[in-house]
Amino acid sequence: MDKKPIIFANWKMYKTVEESVRDSLKIDSSIRNPHQVEVFILLSYTSIYAVSQALRGKSVKVGAQNVFWEDSGSYTGEVSPLQLKDAGCEYAMVGHAERREIFGEDYGMIARKFKAVMRHGLIHFLWVGESEQERASGKTEEVI
């Protein structure tokens, strides 16, 4: 069985809502054989709803760059799996090296996020990997 190539575009904090919609539609229209490749765009929270609406019925899939482990509560600035689904998101990434390095997310936090994503039926991407410094010092295999 042939495996489809998978392409991820993690736009991080680089695009406005308008730019995200425009560029996601450009990407979608450039895919010649949508049954031969899977394309995921991982967006900031502010763009998820607009992009998911713009891509409705198209081949590019919409994912979130992060998620919180609780469904609701007093967690200022966080977004729950329920809120992501409500915005049209079907995929969520957890465990990105930047989240671990910059925000101090540890494996316990990542596990809680991963379980929350699974509990709500979002398709999950669990990132594992090394930091730039760990890669440069030859510790990639040890870290993974």
Rank of each mutant, 00 (worst) to 15 (best):
61 K>D: 02
16 T>V: 09
44 S>T: 06
14 Y>M: 09
67 V>M: 06
88 G>W: 03
6 I>M: 10
141 E>M: 10
58 K>A: 01
72 S>Q: 14
86 D>I: 05
53 Q>A: 03
97 A>D: 10
82 L>R: 09
7 I>A: 07
24 S>P: 00
108 G>W: 08
96 H>R: 05
106 D>E: 06
55 L>P: 00
38 E>F: 11
45 Y>E: 08
108 G>L: 12
95 G>N: 02
124 H>W: 15
33 N>E: 13
14 Y>R: 05
6 I>P: 03
66 N>W: 08
47 S>V: 01
137 S>E: 15
48 I>D: 01
100 R>G: 00
136 A>I: 15
142 E>V: 15
52 S>D: 03
5 P>N: 09
119 R>L: 14
44 S>R: 07
118 M>G: 08
21 V>K: 00
91 Y>F: 12
118 M>C: 14
13 M>A: 10
143 V>Q: 13
71 D>T: 14
94 V>M: 04
81 P>Q: 09
32 R>Q: 15
135 R>H: 13
98 E>P: 03
130 E>S: 04
68 F>V: 03
84 L>I: 07
92 A>S: 05
2 D>E: 15
31 I>Q: 04
41 I>F: 03
126 L>T: 07
40 F>G: 00
120 H>N: 14
114 F>G: 02
53 Q>S: 10
126 L>I: 10
19 E>N: 06
25 L>R: 00
61 K>A: 04
39 V>A: 02
143 V>Y: 11
34 P>V: 07
118 M>F: 15
103 F>D: 02
90 E>I: 06
1 M>H: 13
119 R>N: 15
21 V>M: 01
88 G>Q: 07
130 E>A: 07
65 Q>M: 05
129 G>L: 08
78 E>Q: 13
127 W>R: 12
137 S>L: 15
139 K>M: 15
77 G>Q: 08
28 D>C: 06
143 V>H: 10
3 K>Y: 14
39 V>C: 05
62 V>Y: 00
74 S>C: 15
128 V>Y: 13
81 P>C: 07
31 I>V: 13
61 K>F: 05
98 E>H: 07
27 I>D: 01
79 V>A: 04
144 I>E: 08
112 R>P: 06
94 V>K: 01
108 G>F: 09
44 S>N: 11
126 L>E: 06
71 D>L: 14
61 K>Q: 12
94 V>A: 03
23 D>Y: 11
99 R>K: 08
144 I>N: 08
86 D>E: 12
50 A>S: 11
11 W>Q: 00
123 I>N: 13
63 G>N: 05
15 K>Y: 11
41 I>K: 00
65 Q>P: 02
67 V>Q: 03
91 Y>H: 09
33 N>F: 11
99 R>H: 08
